[in-house]
Protein backbone atom coordinates (compact mmCIF):
# COMPACT_ATOMS: atom_id res chain seq x y z
CA UNK A 1 0.00 0.00 0.00
CA UNK A 2 2.82 2.27 -0.78
CA UNK A 3 1.73 5.56 -2.11
CA UNK A 4 4.74 6.55 -4.07
CA UNK A 5 5.34 10.23 -3.77
CA UNK A 6 7.34 12.21 -6.23
CA UNK A 7 7.37 15.92 -5.53
CA UNK A 8 6.65 18.21 -8.37
CA UNK A 9 10.04 19.72 -9.28
CA UNK A 10 8.76 23.26 -9.47
CA UNK A 11 7.11 23.36 -6.08
CA UNK A 12 9.78 21.19 -4.54
CA UNK A 13 12.34 23.85 -5.28
CA UNK A 14 10.96 26.20 -2.62
CA UNK A 15 9.52 24.33 0.35
CA UNK A 16 7.18 26.70 2.10
CA UNK A 17 6.27 26.65 5.77
CA UNK A 18 2.93 25.16 4.90
CA UNK A 19 4.73 22.42 3.03
CA UNK A 20 6.94 21.75 6.02
CA UNK A 21 3.85 21.61 8.23
CA UNK A 22 2.29 19.16 5.88
CA UNK A 23 5.29 16.87 6.13
CA UNK A 24 5.47 17.17 9.91
CA UNK A 25 1.77 16.60 10.51
CA UNK A 26 1.81 13.46 8.45
CA UNK A 27 0.15 14.56 5.31
CA UNK A 28 -2.94 16.38 6.54
CA UNK A 29 -3.00 19.66 4.68
CA UNK A 30 -3.44 22.67 6.97
CA UNK A 31 -6.65 24.56 6.54
CA UNK A 32 -5.83 28.18 5.89
CA UNK A 33 -8.74 30.48 6.47
CA UNK A 34 -8.51 33.59 4.35
CA UNK A 35 -8.53 36.96 6.04
CA UNK A 36 -11.59 38.53 4.57
CA UNK A 37 -14.59 36.36 5.34
CA UNK A 38 -17.77 36.31 3.37
CA UNK A 39 -16.54 36.78 -0.17
CA UNK A 40 -19.42 34.80 -1.49
CA UNK A 41 -22.70 36.52 -0.64
CA UNK A 42 -24.64 33.30 -0.55
CA UNK A 43 -22.19 31.60 1.76
CA UNK A 44 -21.89 34.69 3.88
CA UNK A 45 -25.55 34.45 4.63
CA UNK A 46 -24.82 31.18 6.43
CA UNK A 47 -21.69 32.54 8.06
CA UNK A 48 -19.39 30.53 5.86
CA UNK A 49 -16.74 31.19 3.33
CA UNK A 50 -14.99 29.40 0.55
CA UNK A 51 -12.51 26.76 1.46
CA UNK A 52 -9.01 27.52 0.24
CA UNK A 53 -8.91 24.14 -1.47
CA UNK A 54 -12.08 24.76 -3.33
CA UNK A 55 -14.47 22.89 -1.07
CA UNK A 56 -16.39 24.18 1.92
CA UNK A 57 -15.75 24.22 5.58
CA UNK A 58 -17.99 24.85 8.46
CA UNK A 59 -21.36 23.24 8.56
CA UNK A 60 -21.47 22.28 4.91
CA UNK A 61 -18.23 20.38 5.17
CA UNK A 62 -19.59 18.00 7.71
CA UNK A 63 -22.33 16.50 5.65
CA UNK A 64 -20.45 15.47 2.51
CA UNK A 65 -17.50 14.26 4.55
CA UNK A 66 -19.60 11.97 6.72
CA UNK A 67 -21.35 10.71 3.62
CA UNK A 68 -18.00 10.07 2.06
CA UNK A 69 -16.94 7.85 4.90
CA UNK A 70 -19.95 5.67 4.20
CA UNK A 71 -19.31 5.85 0.48
CA UNK A 72 -15.72 4.81 0.98
CA UNK A 73 -16.83 1.84 3.03
CA UNK A 74 -19.15 0.92 0.19
CA UNK A 75 -16.44 1.38 -2.41
CA UNK A 76 -13.98 -0.67 -0.44
CA UNK A 77 -16.37 -3.59 -0.49
CA UNK A 78 -17.21 -3.42 -4.15
CA UNK A 79 -14.03 -3.18 -6.18
CA UNK A 80 -14.62 -4.42 -9.69
CA UNK A 81 -11.36 -5.19 -11.44
CA UNK A 82 -10.88 -4.61 -15.12
CA UNK A 83 -10.67 -7.84 -17.08
CA UNK A 84 -7.23 -7.10 -18.40
CA UNK A 85 -4.25 -9.37 -18.15
CA UNK A 86 -0.93 -8.69 -19.78
CA UNK A 87 0.97 -11.92 -19.39
CA UNK A 88 1.81 -14.72 -16.94
CA UNK A 89 0.33 -12.93 -13.92
CA UNK A 90 -3.01 -12.84 -15.73
CA UNK A 91 -3.34 -16.57 -15.21
CA UNK A 92 -2.77 -16.17 -11.49
CA UNK A 93 -5.16 -13.23 -11.50
CA UNK A 94 -7.81 -15.48 -13.01
CA UNK A 95 -6.85 -18.09 -10.49
CA UNK A 96 -7.83 -15.71 -7.68
CA UNK A 97 -11.35 -15.69 -9.06
CA UNK A 98 -11.66 -19.47 -9.25
CA UNK A 99 -13.13 -21.98 -6.88
CA UNK A 100 -10.13 -22.31 -4.65
CA UNK A 101 -9.30 -18.65 -4.05
CA UNK A 102 -12.70 -17.09 -4.76
CA UNK A 103 -12.12 -13.33 -4.62
CA UNK A 104 -15.88 -12.93 -5.05
CA UNK A 105 -16.14 -13.35 -1.27
CA UNK A 106 -14.86 -9.80 -0.85
CA UNK A 107 -17.11 -8.33 -3.51
CA UNK A 108 -14.33 -8.03 -6.05
CA UNK A 109 -15.70 -10.41 -8.54
CA UNK A 110 -17.45 -9.22 -11.61
CA UNK A 111 -14.39 -8.67 -13.79
CA UNK A 112 -15.76 -5.97 -16.06
CA UNK A 113 -14.63 -6.09 -19.64
CA UNK A 114 -15.22 -2.40 -20.25
CA UNK A 115 -12.94 0.09 -18.49
CA UNK A 116 -15.89 2.43 -18.05
CA UNK A 117 -17.35 0.15 -15.43
CA UNK A 118 -14.22 -0.94 -13.59
CA UNK A 119 -12.80 0.36 -10.33
CA UNK A 120 -9.44 -1.34 -10.09
CA UNK A 121 -6.86 -1.82 -12.80
CA UNK A 122 -4.78 -4.87 -11.92
CA UNK A 123 -1.73 -4.57 -14.13
CA UNK A 124 -0.98 -8.26 -14.32
CA UNK A 125 2.22 -8.94 -16.16
CA UNK A 126 5.06 -7.40 -18.08
CA UNK A 127 4.28 -4.02 -19.56
CA UNK A 128 6.01 -3.48 -22.87
CA UNK A 129 6.61 -0.15 -24.52
CA UNK A 130 4.18 -1.07 -27.25
CA UNK A 131 1.46 -1.80 -24.68
CA UNK A 132 2.18 1.25 -22.50
CA UNK A 133 0.07 3.59 -24.61
CA UNK A 134 -3.02 1.38 -24.73
CA UNK A 135 -2.73 0.63 -21.01
CA UNK A 136 -2.58 4.30 -20.09
CA UNK A 137 -5.54 4.89 -22.31
CA UNK A 138 -7.44 2.18 -20.46
CA UNK A 139 -6.52 3.80 -17.18
CA UNK A 140 -7.73 7.15 -18.37
CA UNK A 141 -10.98 5.67 -19.57
CA UNK A 142 -11.80 4.35 -16.13
CA UNK A 143 -14.10 6.65 -14.16
CA UNK A 144 -13.05 8.09 -10.82
CA UNK A 145 -12.62 6.89 -8.13
CA UNK A 146 -10.20 4.30 -9.44
CA UNK A 147 -7.22 2.42 -8.15
CA UNK A 148 -4.28 0.62 -9.67
CA UNK A 149 -2.63 -2.55 -8.40
CA UNK A 150 0.75 -3.49 -9.85
CA UNK A 151 1.00 -7.26 -9.79
CA UNK A 152 4.29 -9.05 -10.18
CA UNK A 153 7.89 -7.97 -10.27
CA UNK A 154 7.90 -7.16 -13.97
CA UNK A 155 5.13 -4.68 -13.35
CA UNK A 156 6.60 -3.13 -10.26
CA UNK A 157 10.17 -2.81 -11.48
CA UNK A 158 10.88 -4.57 -14.74
CA UNK A 159 11.87 -7.73 -12.90
CA UNK A 160 13.70 -10.31 -14.90
CA UNK A 161 13.33 -8.19 -18.01
CA UNK A 162 15.24 -5.30 -16.50
CA UNK A 163 17.66 -5.19 -19.41
CA UNK A 164 15.19 -5.77 -22.17
CA UNK A 165 14.88 -3.30 -25.00
CA UNK A 166 11.12 -3.31 -25.05
CA UNK A 167 9.94 -3.50 -21.45
CA UNK A 168 8.77 -0.58 -19.33
CA UNK A 169 10.79 -0.71 -16.11
CA UNK A 170 7.91 -0.49 -13.73
CA UNK A 171 4.36 0.54 -14.42
CA UNK A 172 4.65 3.50 -12.07
CA UNK A 173 6.58 5.23 -14.81
CA UNK A 174 3.42 5.64 -16.80
CA UNK A 175 0.61 5.73 -14.26
CA UNK A 176 0.07 6.08 -10.53
CA UNK A 177 0.03 2.87 -8.53
CA UNK A 178 -1.73 2.31 -5.21
CA UNK A 179 -0.60 -1.17 -4.24
CA UNK A 180 2.44 -3.13 -5.32
CA UNK A 181 2.25 -6.91 -5.11
CA UNK A 182 5.68 -8.49 -5.61
CA UNK A 183 6.25 -12.03 -6.78
CA UNK A 184 6.93 -13.72 -10.07
CA UNK A 185 4.06 -14.24 -10.31
CA UNK A 186 2.52 -13.62 -6.88
CA UNK A 187 0.47 -16.49 -5.58
CA UNK A 188 -3.29 -15.86 -5.69
CA UNK A 189 -3.19 -15.45 -1.94
CA UNK A 190 -0.68 -12.68 -2.48
CA UNK A 191 -2.97 -10.84 -4.84
CA UNK A 192 -5.89 -11.25 -2.44
CA UNK A 193 -3.72 -9.83 0.33
CA UNK A 194 -2.84 -6.91 -1.90
CA UNK A 195 -6.48 -6.31 -2.70
CA UNK A 196 -7.34 -6.35 1.00
CA UNK A 197 -4.60 -3.81 1.58
CA UNK A 198 -6.24 -1.76 -1.12
CA UNK A 199 -9.52 -2.07 0.76
CA UNK A 200 -7.81 -0.63 3.82
CA UNK A 201 -6.42 2.17 1.71
CA UNK A 202 -9.84 2.99 0.36
CA UNK A 203 -11.39 2.95 3.82
CA UNK A 204 -8.62 5.06 5.34
CA UNK A 205 -9.07 7.80 2.85
CA UNK A 206 -12.02 9.08 4.86
CA UNK A 207 -13.55 11.04 2.10
CA UNK A 208 -10.70 13.35 1.30
CA UNK A 209 -11.79 14.54 -2.06
CA UNK A 210 -8.38 15.87 -2.91
CA UNK A 211 -7.03 12.37 -3.26
CA UNK A 212 -9.26 11.80 -6.25
CA UNK A 213 -7.53 14.47 -8.16
CA UNK A 214 -3.98 14.48 -6.92
CA UNK A 215 -2.56 11.20 -5.84
CA UNK A 216 0.77 12.75 -5.01
CA UNK A 217 2.27 10.89 -7.93
CA UNK A 218 3.71 12.83 -10.74
CA UNK A 219 2.23 11.85 -14.02
CA UNK A 220 4.79 11.05 -16.66
CA UNK A 221 3.88 11.49 -20.27
CA UNK A 222 4.18 8.06 -21.80
CA UNK A 223 4.71 9.23 -25.30
CA UNK A 224 8.30 10.14 -24.66
CA UNK A 225 11.01 7.99 -23.18
CA UNK A 226 9.10 5.83 -20.77
CA UNK A 227 11.99 3.81 -19.49
Amino acid sequence: MALKTTPDPQTAAEPSMAEADRVLTGGTPPIVIPDQAGDDPILAEFGMEEHPQGGFHGLLEVIPTRADIVLDLIRANSLWPLLSGLSCCAIEMMSTATSKNDIDRFGMFPFRASPRQADVLIVAGTLTTKMAGPLVRLWEQMPEPKWCVAMGTCTTSGGRFKRSYSVVQGVDRVMPVDVYVPGCPPRPEGLIYGMMKLQELVKQRRGEWSTYVDRGVQRIDWEGDVR
Binding site: G125, T128, F161, S164, Y165, S166
Partner: peptide, 13 residues
Protein backbone atom coordinates in the same frame (compact mmCIF):
# COMPACT_ATOMS: atom_id res chain seq x y z
CA UNK B 1 4.06 -7.63 -30.29
CA UNK B 2 2.20 -6.16 -27.34
CA UNK B 3 4.01 -8.63 -25.13
CA UNK B 4 7.34 -8.73 -26.93
CA UNK B 5 9.91 -8.82 -24.17
CA UNK B 6 13.00 -9.64 -26.15
CA UNK B 7 13.58 -13.00 -24.49
CA UNK B 8 15.83 -14.30 -27.26
CA UNK B 9 18.12 -11.31 -26.98
CA UNK B 10 18.22 -11.58 -23.21
CA UNK B 11 19.04 -15.27 -23.47
CA UNK B 12 22.00 -14.50 -25.70
CA UNK B 13 23.45 -12.47 -22.84
Amino acid sequence: GYLHRGIEKLCEE
